[in-house]
Design a protein around this nucleic acid. Structure first.
Lengths: 197, 197
DNA sequence: GGCCGCGTATGATTTAAGTCATAGCCGGTT
DNA sequence: AACCGGCTATGACTTAAATCATACGCGGCC
């Protein structure tokens, strides 16, 4: 989102994370602006039974945990390093000064929020009809369109069936069976268990 | 959101709408910034079978259809006047000039998007577990906390069971039965069919 | 090489939400 | 007062996803 050099100029610091390290917890209040440099971060809600709901997979260059910076609320979800990763973070108040002095960066964040909100609108309406085939099919085509969670070279979906289950609220078995159905319908291909679209 | 006098000063115009009049359609591109003056507007997605998914009920003073203004995408949902209503609208380019000249208004919109995104995060995680009782219970307590869709005087939920069904993807019958259950558990009260919390 | 863990795969059974049908209630209208 | 339409209510039946159990394939590692 923000150029790393700019962040460094404003006093941001790198931080190394090992896989499964928690960056911040749902419900806590925010001290920092966070941006992923390398690796992968998942943004999840964990319910009473310990089941994870996957809100977003963050890819390098994207920011996360930005909501509380703008509306003073608590974190809406927990951020966990999905693999060994490097993040860069900037103090909250410095971040707010930064966007105040750089209206174009401020607008870029407004745009980012609009895009993320649009994705949630989309997800909600597609999840609401409770048809697994429809949900998974539209989710995957959304990823294909936006080139998110997809290997740019080989079109492989970078999500496991469990992760797709965690994003849709379905069970792994249902996702496995549904993806199999989509294959027989020719909507995607499976090679050695990996899904390509 | 924006003061009506300010909007008028920038050349905004009122528009009267009768019940069920469509303001804009999902997928279209945006020409205006819209704000509700009086009445009620519902923001819905309509699926292939004609079933409505209710994204938000807009109350007087709130804006709607703002996503495309920031990210240049199409409308994420269709806006329909739920009853006879008055809206005020401002040309898109004028709106963008307005927020450029008024950083505090710009920030207010960023905050608004953050809040709406937070609500979608919340909805998604609560809907994902597919437990109607949990979904409805948390939805209603969210409304109670934020004083949205609730009569400020008598605590009556201003949504019909059908509307709650349309927001959760459940069927009316399920919502009716679930709300009945919540009543016997003492989580809410029903008087003459109306729900109070 | 052999072991282990994770992800994928598949069948059998259960259960809860959807579906369908029908009825009653309440407020507004002629 | 009688009528109508929208909303609420309830029972009977069906169906699809969850659940449970089990197995296989593959890559990493001692």
């Amino acid at each position: 989102m923000i150029d790393v050099d700019t962040l460094l100029a404003w006093g941001a610091a790198f931080k190394k994370l090992s896989a499964n390290e928690i960056i911040f917890n749902e419900g806590a209040s925010a001290q920092f602006y966070y941006q992923l440099v390398s690796g992968s971060v998942r943004w999840v809600n964990i319910n009473d039974e310990g089941k994870e709901f996957l809100q977003v997979m963050i890819e390098p260059g994207e920011c996360f945990g930005e909501l509380p910076l703008f509306d003073d609320g608590p974190f809406a979800a927990t951020a966990v390093a999905d693999e060994d990763s490097v993040i860069i973070r900037l103090h909250r108040s410095t971040f707010l000064d930064l966007i105040k002095e750089n209206p174009e960066i401020h607008f870029a964040f407004t745009k980012l929020l609009a895009e993320r909100l649009r994705f949630k609108f989309f997800l909600l309406k597609e999840m609401a009809n409770h048809d697994p085939e429809h949900s998974i099919s539209t989710l995957l085509s959304y990823f294909k369109q936006t080139r998110k969670n997809i290997c740019p070279k080989c079109n492989r979906i970078k999500l496991t069936r469990q992760q797709i289950a965690d994003m849709t609220g379905l069970r792994v078995e249902t996702v496995i069976r549904t993806i199999k159905n989509l294959q027989t319908k020719g909507q995607l291909t499976i090679e050695k268990g990996k899904v390509y679209c």
